[in-house]
Design a protein around this nucleic acid. Structure first.
Lengths: 142, 142
DNA sequence: GTAATTGCAAATACTTTGCCACGTA
DNA sequence: TACGTGGCAAAGTATTTGCAATTAC
């Protein structure tokens, strides 16, 4: 069923004029299997992609996926940008250790949707979304 | 009274072994006067600092200020990092236009403190804090 | 005088682009 | 065939460091 999701995503991209390539398929699969956002370097070095294509290709694929709203680029405080697949109803906030850099998605329901609605109404911003991260030192590092 | 705050901050830094320099004073003043986080480049090019010192100096000052908990480094999605003075009881969340890049602090009370407490208890993370940003297209750009 | 600080230049890190060959439709 | 895509190498942007000279205390 993971494959169904991948196919569905590719199908939408194809309608937008993109072509089905092995690299695209592997990238989407990798992002889908990852439980946390990944950097360009991590993706390019991952099992599925490392011998599949160049880092520049992964970069351009991520760019296209982002343009088409299938991927979101996150900050997360590192020097490198992080990328995550954008699945309907799958928003995550993150808990990040500033010492070892571990990143995990937070299970608890996100508490900012109401504020987000207020902001949308009051400010007239369009396409509003948010990014929420908690930073601290994890028990292992403390 | 702004100057009092600057002096107070410098006083604390002096206790930590740092020296009072013109550049340090101007940097803190600039950050204090700014209503939004600023990048290293913006700071180095600002009125108070541009003819005061080199960009590398601003970088190192920000580094020291961050180490001593007086400044926080934020992601905010741009390629460059943003820095903001950390004043007691002055936490801000931000609303950012993905088109023109404008950044403004949100006045509404931050809705994540409760979740933050829960996470602190459940995970055992230390020095926990959060970063919350809303992204969208502002009315001017839409 | 001693140790922290600074400027300048050089080194890194990560991202982005140019160009031509290649693959998909 | 036509146009999106890919690899490789080079350029771009932001950050970080080395070192000798300077400054604060």
């Amino acid at each position: 069923m993971k494959n169904d999701v991948v196919q569905e995503i590719i199908h939408r991209l194809r309608n937008a004029g993109l072509r089905r390539t092995k690299a695209l398929e592997e990238l989407i699969t990798t992002l889908l299997e990852s439980e946390r956002p990944m950097t360009l370097s991590e993706l390019a070095a991952s099992d599925r992609l490392s011998d599949q294509c160049d880092k520049a290709t992964v970069f351009r694929l991520l760019q296209r996926l982002t343009e088409h709203g299938m991927v979101r680029r996150l900050g997360l405080h590192e020097r490198a940008a992080y990328f995550t697949l954008l699945l309907p109803g799958k928003h995550s906030d993150y808990l990040i250790c500033t010492s070892c850099g571990s990143i995990e998605a937070i299970k608890a329901p996100c508490p900012v949707h109401q504020l987000e609605d207020e902001i949308r109404e009051k400010t007239g911003f369009r396409n509003l979304y948010h990014e929420l991260e908690f930073f601290g030192v994890c028990p292992k590092c403390a």
